[in-house]
Design a binder for these strands. Structure first.
Lengths: 227, 227
DNA sequence: CGCTATATTGAAAGCGGTCAATGCCTGTGG
DNA sequence: CCACAGGCATTGACCGCTTTCAATATAGCG
């Protein structure tokens, strides 16, 4: 468990910045979990019991219909939190969370989280910012899904991945997609085939190159103008 | 200004439940505004300065692209809050807010709101719940936009309006849409013509009746099963 | 009472989805 | 080490839903 506190301090999570006493408190609240790729952390409709800080790896949040249609709502990376709905009054998870690769998570029990929040107003303030940021991100996604074509969605997706990198490789921006074509399609609200076709078209037009999970953006300017 | 405090108490807002002293505090923070239909409260990209509680009327939040495509993110009714992004670190509104009818708003300056939040942990807790609820709502919308057909979106929209009413009129549920076909289309991420055509089809199939802003859901069960 | 915005309908074109076949890549067992 | 199975990626053909463009109809408003 000591490791959890260590990681809370080192990591760029909302828990960073707590006082030593608070961390001692936190120590009792955190539970480490190591999960393999493809494991379900919690499931839509399941009774809600807490949140999970992603310490390493990646987690996708999604909803699925009875017919199997799936929409990926969000991909969480290191330092982000799954199950924020633990802060709500309602008591069931509204979506499913699943690891996309081997991941380490810190579990925060809801009751203890609530207690911690009521003790520490600075932590509340941080959570408010995290939630408000998440709303903004969600609004942006609603906008993209509601108004953009498949090509525009894909271009936007590739550029959002590129935004993380500040080291433009010699000729372009190198990306490694940590997900399948299927996942990409379900993030963008298009079919897998369309996703693949759009990528192929981008390659034909020399906007991108590479293959499989390793892609290179060769022409950012043109990608921005896709139409 | 006294009226603001009165309304804060009476209204079902997050400000309800504050102690008398806190309300006295709030009194200085609130500013009333009466706006006509179609007035812009704040604009995407504009420097952020505060939030607005909707006291009466309705407010739509939307984003718009350079080409004029518009996506309505959310419609706020009495008691809800526009400009929640005031809680974030970033300093610009991420979307535009505009009244959909004559509305009364209470303005909450950001700095004072922050102060109030730091003074009152219960208020922080309420805001956390409001924000978490909003995230859930946004996720649901992402799911609908990403996976559903025009008909399904419309059916879902009509039923969500019906959900507010508990008095099923003799033969069906009476709805009065407080918005144009254009607005509906931009909420669902479809074209105006498609929105109208879907409504016409529903009428042909006797799922709904009525015209203009007054519609009646005649067959909820069938509407739920729409394709 | 005309004017302008909104609502409605038609026809044609295009984007994206579905179905189907094939290729590719990896892990596994013989 | 190789063959094979299963999953993922890719491409083609075709179809249907949505959009777009255009023409009216209708309604709210000054």
């Amino acid at each position: 468990m000591k490791g959890c506190v260590q990681c809370a301090v080192r990591m760029n999570t909302i828990l960073a910045g707590l006082t030593p006493e608070e961390l001692a408190e936190v120590e009792e609240l955190l539970v480490h979990q190591q999960l393999k790729k493809g494991e379900v952390i919690f499931c839509e409709g399941e009774k809600m019991h807490g949140s999970y800080i992603v310490k390493s790896g990646a987690v996708k949040l999604y909803k699925r219909s009875r017919e199997g249609e799936r929409q990926i709502l969000r991909v969480l990376k290191e330092g982000e939190i799954a199950g924020l709905c633990a802060l709500r009054a309602k008591s069931n998870y509204g979506h499913t969370a699943e690891t996309m690769e081997k991941s380490i998570l810190c579990y925060l029990n809801k009751n203890k989280l609530d207690k911690l929040l009521s003790l520490n107003e600075d932590l509340s303030s941080k959570f408010l910012k995290v939630l408000a940021d998440e709303i903004d991100r969600a609004y942006e996604k609603i906008y993209l899904l509601g108004t953009k074509s498949a090509k525009e969605k894909m271009a936007n997706f590739l550029m959002s991945l590129a935004a993380g990198k500040d080291e433009p490789v010699e000729d372009g921006i190198e990306l490694r997609l940590a997900m399948s074509r299927d996942d990409i399609a379900d993030m963008l609200g298009i079919s897998t085939e369309t996703a693949i076709r759009v990528l192929s078209e981008f390659k034909d037009k020399d906007l991108i190159s590479g293959q499989g999970k390793y892609l290179i953006i060769d022409d950012v300017d043109e990608l921005e103008k896709v139409d």
